[in-house]
Amino acid sequence: MKPRQKRMAIIGGGLAALAIVTALVLNAFEDNLLFFFSPTQVHAKEAPLDRPFRIGGLVEAGSVKRGPDGVTVTFKVTDTAQVVPVTYKGILPDLFQEGKGVVARGRLGPDGVFRADQVLARHDENYMPPEAAYALEQAKKSQGSLVAPAGGYGK
């Protein structure tokens, strides 16, 4: 092959490979995007039933219960406006506590119970997962806008 053809072959092969890789990457990317929904959004039926997503907020006080096998845990996630029940099988993170922030990944069942396959809490005592903080803020905002005309409460 002449150097020119050679270069064309390399460039052509490279571009073809790149196209395949791009298709592969974008396809996998699309399939694995995990959206975040607050309990309010879950109640408004905005969350999908057919793919996993993440929810977050506070663990409602007094809601953590253990199943008869000892390993399954149920608790409720709240953004102070709405509540979503969650079940999780396994050991919860050390910093998982009632009244504290939490983010869970999983699927929503047809019964409205969120089946988590991963539960994340904070890494640090003084720290709230940003998603959980965001959910609370959103709920506060929407409540605020409802109540605001009366008393200017909220944000």
Binding site: V21, L24, A28, F29, N32, L34, F36, R54
Partner: peptide, 16 residues
């Protein structure tokens, strides 16, 4: 909005 990319994405891309 808030979203994240799940670990399966990285596995799916990285191995091939």
């Amino acid at each position: 909005g808030k979203l994240s990319v799940g670990p399966p994405y990285f596995d799916a891309v990285y191995l091939p």
